[in-house]
Nucleic acid binder design. Structure first.
Lengths: 250, 250
DNA sequence: AAATATTGAATTGTGTCCAAAGTGATTCTA
DNA sequence: TAGAATCACTTTGGACACAATTCAATATTT
C-alpha cells in the first residue's frame, strides 16, 4: 500500500474536540464516505431504524451521527421527518464555490510560506493516486482524492480552523457535483493539480493565487451550469409543456 | 424598543437546516448567549443533570444542545468527562483571527457590491446600539453587538455559508477575548465601526478591505498579546524559576 | 366521480433506566 | 506520617419504551 499520505477527508478532529467513541466514529466515517463518494444519491432518506440495525447499534448512536452530518450540511434533518442526504440548491452551490475561492485563494500566502519539500512530496503522491484512479475509471475515488488534495493543500497553511471549514466545503462540493452535472464531466477533466504544486514550490504566491481562482471557476462552470431546476410549484406548467409536445397519448 | 435590527448571533439557520424544536432552540440560544457574553467563564463545567433541571427537560435534550455547541467549538466535550466551556489555545486564537482576516476581507467586494442604503441603515442602527451599550458601561452587550456588526456586514454579501462560518468565528473570538486580555481593553476601544460603513457606502472596495484588515489586526493585538501561557510540560521549569527567585519558603 | 375526512401503520421525539467510567475520600500499610 | 490502594459516590454513555407526529391508503360525502 506504499506510504499512503494521511489524506482523509472529514473527521479531521475525530478523537479530539468533540466526544466520540471509536464505534460512533466508524459509523460516521462510513456514512460520510457513502455520501461524499455518491453511493447515496442526494435526497435519499436515512431512516434511523434501518441504520441502527445495519450497524448493530441503537437509534441513540445513529441519531448522534446524523446530527453531526446535519451540522456539516451533508444531510438535511427536518422536524419529525427524519434525515436525508442533502441536495444543495443552486444558490447554495454558488455560495460554496464562492466561499472556496475566498478561502483557498486567501490562504495561499501562508501555504506557500509553509510549504516544505516533504509536504510537497505528500501532495505529489496524492496527485499520483488521483491519476491512477482516473486512469482505471474509478471516478468515485477520483472525486474523493481530488477533494483530499485541496484539503491537504490547506492543511499546509497550519490553520486548523480553515482546514475544517474547507473540509466541509469540499464535501459539500462533492454533493453539488452529484446533484448537478454529469459524472465524468466534473471530475475527470480537471486534474491539473500537478501544476499548482510546482508553482507553489517556486514560491510564486501571485501565480498560485491566480491558478487557484481559475481552477475553482473552471470546476464550478463545468458543474453548476444547470441554471435552475424546476421548482415543485411549477409542476403543473411542466406537465402542460409535455402535453403540448405530445398532444395525444399514444 | 424601536426598530431593532434582526441582529442575532448564532442560530442563523435555526428553523431551517437542522432539526430543532422551539424549546431546544431556546435552550441552545440561552447557553450560547451565556457563553459568548462571558457569563460562563471558559473552562466552566456544564453537567448534564444541572442543565436538565435548570431548563426543566431531560438529559436527552441537553445532550443534543451540548453536541451542537461542541460542533461549533464553543464547548469541549471529552469522552466520559462531560462538557465544559471551551478555552481556546493561543494557536487556536491565532487561527481564528487569521481566518477572519481572510474571510472578512475576501468578502468585501461582494459586500460593497450588494450594499443598499437600507442595509447600511441597519448597520448604522447596530453601531448606535453598540455605542449606547459602551456609554453605559455594558461591556457584555458591547462585545455582543460588536460581533453582531461583523456578522451583519457579512450577511450583506448574500453568502449564507460564509455568514455561518463567520458567526462561528465571531463567537469563538468572544471566547478568546474572555480567555486572554482584560475585559475593557478588548471591546471598548475599537468601535470605529462607523468608519467602515461610510467607506462601503462610497463604494471603495480597496479602502474597505484595508480598513478591515487593519481593524482585525488591531483587535487581535489588543487581545492575544499574551504570548504563550505555560504549557503543562513547562510546569517544572516554571516552578524551578520561581524557586530560583525565592530560594527559601517563608 | 372528485374532493375531503378518517383511520392506521410507520417513523421520529422524548423521558427514563441501567451499566460503565471517572472522581474523591477513606483506610491501610510501610 | 507519607504514599498507595480500595471503595463509595457522582456523572456520563447507550439502549429501551412510550408518546406524538407524519404519511398514505381507505372510506365517506356531495
Amino acid at each position: 500500500m506504499g506510504k499512503r499520505a494521511s489524506a482523509e477527508l472529514g473527521s479531521a478532529r475525530a478523537d479530539e474536540g468533540l466526544g466520540g467513541n471509536g464505534r460512533d466514529e466508524a459509523i460516521y466515517r462510513n456514512l460520510f464516505v457513502a455520501i461524499v463518494e455518491n453511493h447515496l444519491a442526494p435526497g435519499t432518506k436515512l431512516p434511523e431504524d434501518t441504520l441502527a440495525e445495519t450497524y448493530g447499534v441503537s437509534r441513540t448512536s445513529i441519531r448522534k451521527v446524523l446530527q453531526r452530518l446535519a451540522h456539516e450540511r451533508l444531510v438535511d434533518v427536518r422536524l419529525n421527518r427524519g434525515a436525508s442526504v442533502a441536495q444543495p440548491s443552486v444558490g447554495e452551490a454558488r455560495d460554496i464555490f464562492s466561499a472556496r475561492r475566498i478561502i483557498e485563494c486567501g490562504a495561499i500566502p501562508q501555504v506557500v510560506a509553509k510549504a516544505t519539500p516533504t509536504a510537497l512530496e505528500t501532495l505529489r503522491d496524492l496527485v499520483r493516486r488521483e491519476h491512477a484512479a482516473q486512469d482505471r475509471g474509478d471516478w468515485r475515488e477520483s472525486i474523493y482524492l481530488s477533494g483530499a488534495f485541496h484539503v491537504e493543500l490547506m492543511r499546509l497553511s497550519g490553520n486548523e480552523t480553515l482546514t475544517d471549514f474547507l473540509t466541509q466545503l469540499v464535501s459539500r462540493s462533492s454533493l453539488v457535483i452529484a446533484t448537478y452535472g454529469s459524472p465524468q464531466t466534473a471530475s475527470c477533466r480537471h486534474s491539473e493539480h500537478d501544476d499548482v504544486i510546482e508553482i507553489i514550490a517556486g514560491g510564486d504566491v501571485d501565480g498560485a493565487t491566480r491558478w487557484m481562482d481559475r481552477h475553482l471557476r473552471d470546476v464550478e462552470r463545468t458543474v453548476v451550469l444547470v441554471e435552475e431546476e424546476p421548482a415543485p410549484s411549477d409542476l403543473k406548467k411542466i406537465l402542460e409543456e409535455v402535453a403540448q409536445r405530445r398532444p395525444k397519448l399514444r
